[in-house]
């Protein structure tokens, strides 16, 4: 019995030691699923670089906003930009951190990677259930030279509410007035047709398994798993393939001068722009109770802007243009005020 007690005591003591070590320089965040992998990577690297330990929960933008509002985390993360009124009401500063892109993936026998040409309008019609066969005249006309079979189209979407869906339907709404009026934009919507699958893996798996399926996934995933993606026609009328070049072109052409950095990068002008690019946002309380933690959050993202570019690109994210990063830093200096009313940084 004595040995047991001393063993238990040792276990408790070592756990306590762990606990105290863990709380040093820790910042907590919660929200968006889209940037979760890169935030985790940055967190790991930042801890080695400047000792700031990030604890990020990718619980979904909705839950993240709730936690940011209730100040139960140091920052919230959202794939969708918040309305200005909401930001005012909850005293949150919104800034972007990184951008990601979506691609459409297909499973059509005989069609190779980046061979199929699509437009946003056609995608919308497919997901609305109006185009139901791959050899529909509209698709055939766009793809002369590709043998499109007489196969039913099986649209696949994300079953779980997510930022990925938000970006996808933002694009569909931008290019299709009918989509905008019937279905609209949100992290989860009322899909008129098709089937849902859980997570990126679910969508990719279902597309892989179903002949004639079409789905949307984060670009990182498509590349890493060598999925068959499609070209898209951008606003300038050119068919572009998903690549680093086309993503950056979209980012460069974006108009960041909008309030709260809520730039809409979907369907950007520019000869080479990829149409489905979107930033993801951080929500930082403007009146943090603990100034040190707020400073640590800003230090973390500052480090990420300066040193985290390579990591982001490895995971197929698109770093923010330098001008935007500087504008974000400026907003930290002016907007985040400590309990004494003075700027924290």
């Amino acid at each position: 019995m004595n040995r047991l007690t001393s063993l238990l005591g040792a276990a408790v003591a070592s756990l306590a030691l762990f606990a105290s070590a863990a709380s040093a320089q820790q910042i907590t965040g919660a929200g968006a699923t889209f940037p979760n992998p890169i935030y985790q990577k940055w967190g790991e690297a930042a801890q080695k670089a400047n000792g700031i330990q990030l604890n990020y929960q990718s619980v979904g933008s909705g839950a993240g906003l709730t936690q940011a509002r209730n100040r139960t985390v140091d920052f919230g993360a959202s794939d969708a930009p918040m309305a200005a009124a909401q930001l005012e009401e909850h005293k949150l500063l919104q800034f972007p951190t990184v951008m990601g892109s979506l691609v459409a993936i297909v499973n059509i026998p005989g069609v190779a990677d980046n061979q199929l040409k699509m437009t946003g309008e056609l995608l919308a019609e497919i997901y609305l259930g109006k185009i139901t066969k791959w050899n529909d005249p509209k698709l055939v006309e766009m793809n002369r030279g590709v043998a499109l079979p007489n196969l039913a189209i099986a649209p696949v979407y994300r079953a779980d509410g997510s930022g990925t869906t938000f970006v996808w339907v933002s694009y569909l709404s931008a290019v299709s007035p009918e989509w905008k009026s019937t279905v609209g934009v949100g992290t989860s919507v009322k899909w008129p047709s098709g089937t849902g699958a859980r997570g990126n893996e679910g969508v990719a798996g279902t597309v892989r398994n179903t002949r004639g399926a079409i789905g949307y996934v984060e670009n990182a995933y498509a590349i890493q798993n060598k999925l068959v993606s499609t070209q898209l026609r951008n606003k300038a009328g050119n068919f572009v393939s998903p690549s680093h070049e086309t993503f950056l072109a979209a980012a460069d052409n974006a108009d960041w001068s909008v309030p709260n950095f809520a730039a809409n990068l979907v369907d950007q002008p520019g000869a080479k722009s990829w149409p489905i690019v979107s930033p993801t946002f951080i929500l930082l309380p403007k009146d943090p109770k603990d100034a040190t933690r707020a400073v640590n959050v800003m230090k973390f993202f500052d480090w990420a802007f300066t040193n985290g570019t390579k990591l982001a690109e490895e995971l197929e994210y698109i770093p923010l243009p330098k001008a935007v990063q500087d504008a974000v830093r400026a907003s930290w200096k002016t907007q985040i005020k400590g309990p004494d009313g003075r700027p924290v940084m």
Binding site: G62, A63, N70, A159, D160, G161, S188
Partner: peptide, 23 residues
């Protein structure tokens, strides 16, 4: 065809539902 059950709908959409929201 696809469908939904109460339990799976709640599990899938809970994360994107804010506290206090109608959803």
């Amino acid at each position: 065809g696809p469908g939904n059950t109460i339990a799976s709908l709640v599990a899938l959409e809970f994360g994107e539902a804010e506290a206090g929201s109608l959803k």
